[in-house]
Design a protein around this nucleic acid. Structure first.
Lengths: 224, 224
DNA sequence: GTCCACATTGGACGAACAGTCCAGAGCGGC
DNA sequence: GCCGCTCTGGACTGTTCGTCCAATGTGGAC
């Protein structure tokens, strides 16, 4: 795989002054949390990677910033985001934080993301939890806090992922959100439908239309 | 606190041949899993403790077998039960297994219970899980497997606790079960009411009557 | 045994809710 | 401006919820 910008090792000699400025930070954090943490410096203008330390995938400087690490970041609001969870295609679970890095004049020059692979931690935790555990894992814990909040959370997470506010979501976006809500069995709870419609900013009719489409497409391959 | 039978240290010299016979087992298991596991030898006839190693509470031989460790054990069916979870008054969570010990003629002579305190394990697991975790603990995991199973589970747990089959539950029993189901937000899911009525072996009408009584009593102290 | 108080039951009923359908409005591409 | 598309509010039907009541057990006092 070719590299457009500086490779990892000589980030300090990079021609980009932002990389020269913040490379020690990225390298230090990567060394501290390695080998299970990746540190990425993004260019919010071109939406590409400026530098990367300890990459977990095959991403290199110059590659487009995938995973929507920059979506939903409103630099005018806060400067530090997260930690929020992310799920990689191979099933690994990440905890991520993002920080907006600014020039002296206040202009957002770069975004620093730290992605921590929680898989080994969670595996260790699972080993401890499983030791002598009852076969029925949780007799006590209640059903689920508030399904209402769950709806808002799932919708909000998608909005943050794709960077558009709820009103600007396309039809496929809403279908994707509905798929997640459906997987979370949200529609099994009473009075959930109007709440979802409101959260998605569509009418009740449209919601049913979307749901019909979703169920039709999820039964696509079951041709008898 | 007085001791009726042999104390822990001289269990081998006990006058009860069952204690002499199985004390090495209890002691060995207690040594292996200590200090967080307690081993108890029960007399199923008198429902009292024959011997106890590494006691977690203040129980001694001769004390009645608390915690319903023997409830629901049908010696004619299986000989090994669990592991099942238990909750102590001080909040500690236990994993317990029970084994029916038999004389050569097949008569159930004693019941051996091992109670493992999972609190330290779970605390360690919590430490690992919390490391770098998103503030929103579980964005991904689905709502809850099957609320239907949860109903059966909650009802079944109560039945096991009080030892009566579902048909013989008294009105207060059913009220207690309903309180648990209500706490678990079961009635927030669609179509749950008929399922609960069936699980409790009452008619739909009676269920509503019970629910009304439950809500009335839970609002008792709110006299304005 | 009879009687009475009370819990339970099935069924009837209105209200609330879920889901479908359609005519019309809004909107982007051509 | 026209056309195809989606979204929308409203009307409509069937289901579910929750309440009410007369009839029917059921268990204890006498």
């Amino acid at each position: 795989m070719w590299t457009y910008g500086p490779v990892v090792e000589d980030a300090e000699e990079s021609t980009d002054h932002r990389v020269r400025l913040w490379a020690p930070v990225g390298q230090a954090v990567a060394l501290l949390l390695g080998p299970y943490a990746e540190v990425v410096l993004h260019d919010p203008e071109t939406d590409r990677i400026l530098a990367i330390w300890n990459p977990m995938g095959s991403r290199s400087p110059g590659d487009p910033s995938l995973l929507g690490e920059l979506d939903g970041l409103d630099p005018s609001a806060r400067d530090v985001f997260g930690p929020y969870g992310k799920l990689l295609a191979d099933g690994r679970r990440l905890s991520s934080v993002s920080a907006v890095l600014r020039e002296p004049d206040g202009k957002a020059a770069a975004v620093l993301c730290v992605n921590l692979d929680r898989t080994p931690l969670e595996q260790a935790a699972a080993v401890l939890s499983a030791f002598g555990a009852p076969t029925v894992p949780r007799p006590e814990p209640l059903f689920e806090q508030d399904w209402n909040e769950r709806v808002q959370h799932i919708v909000g997470a998608y909005v943050r992922e794709c960077g558009r506010p709820v009103e600007r979501l396309t039809r496929v976006d809403r279908l994707a959100v509905l798929a997640r809500l459906d997987e979370a069995k949200i529609f099994a709870v009473r009075r959930a439908n109007p709440v979802v419609a409101a959260a998605l900013r569509v009418s009740r009719s449209t919601l049913y239309s979307l749901l019909a489409e979703l169920r039709a497409s999820s039964t696509k391959d079951h041709t008898p």
